[in-house]
Design a protein around this nucleic acid. Structure first.
Length: 259
DNA sequence: TCAGTTGTTTATAT
DNA sequence: AATATAAACAACTG
């Protein structure tokens, strides 16, 4: 689930429930979820601090706490939950910040992703690694520039976080379907016209998804067909193709999407 | 029982 | 030097 729009939703959720509250306790049920420090050091760094407004870059969420910053990556199955008390904690609530008035929980079934602690903003970049510009703010000239000397397939390029941050498997399928571009089309084969369509689709898909705070499964979107028994193109009703492209299961319409 | 899964990193191959 | 591929991580679901 967690791609750019999902993390945008988590950020808003954090802002609504956790921001402005003071950290009373830090609970870590699985120490491995804290990636670059120990649970006790994390607790020491955060306890007593007031949580500020969160921010996001790509699939990363940053939760500043008056100096130190908590970094969250949600992997494939992560999410946040707010609760007034501890009565309904789940076994996959790997990290819980007990605040005044309730608690915010980082839940993650699989252990992909996790929590990192940065001493300050200057340390954030080395934790996230190389990230391209956030996909939500890439304008058309910048997209053309990013892809100008890129070889290989377009789906791989869109999902490369070091090139453009925030697009994952589902969002890349949606963008490419909306732009009518085949997922394995070579970047160098895309003319300016198709790059324009790509940018339009990327922007539209992200703006609409961000409104929902997640990638929606809208009737007119190809993501609505993911996982169904007989997936069909919402535009032309052709049977969708499904195959591994750039290491992930891609869905596309063989009639609408061309190389 | 077994394949498949929204992400990233690592190793290996091209 | 880039790009591609596969495996690994963990814990589920169908």
């Amino acid at each position: 689930m967690p791609e750019l729009p999902d993390v945008e939703g988590f950020k808003r959720y954090w802002a609504r429930h956790a921001s402005g509250h003071r950290v009373k306790e830090v609970r870590v049920s699985n120490p491995a979820i804290v990636r670059n420090t120990s649970p006790s050091a994390l607790a020491r760094a955060l306890k007593g601090r007031r949580l500020e407004r969160p921010s996001r870059h790509g699939k990363w969420m940053f939760a500043p706490a008056g100096g130190p910053i908590l970094l969250l990556h949600f992997g494939m199955t992560g999410g946040l939950l707010w609760s007034r008390d501890e009565s309904d904690r789940h076994r996959h609530d790997r990290l819980v910040l007990v605040l005044d008035g309730g608690e915010i929980r980082y839940r993650n079934m699989r252990m992909l992703g996790g929590a990192w602690l940065a001493r300050d903003a200057s340390q954030v970049g080395q934790i996230t690694g190389e990230l391209g510009p956030d996909a939500a703010v890439v304008d058309r000239p910048q997209l053309e520039e990013l892809l100008a000397d890129r070889r290989g397939g377009i789906k791989a390029a869109l999902m490369n976080q070091g090139l453009i941050a925030g697009i994952g498997n589902e969002l890349s399928d949606e963008i490419l379907w909306q732009a009518r571009i085949h997922p394995s089309a070579q970047v160098q084969g895309l003319g300016r016209r198709r790059l324009g369509a790509l940018h339009r689709a990327m922007t539209d898909a992200i703006v609409e998804s961000n409104r929902h705070g997640r990638i929606p499964r809208l009737d007119g979107w190809i993501t609505s067909q993911r996982g169904v028994r007989d997936p069909r193109c919402p535009r032309c009703s052709s049977r969708l193709r499904r195959a591994t492209i750039a290491g992930r299961t891609a869905y596309w319409c063989p009639r609408c999407q061309r190389h």
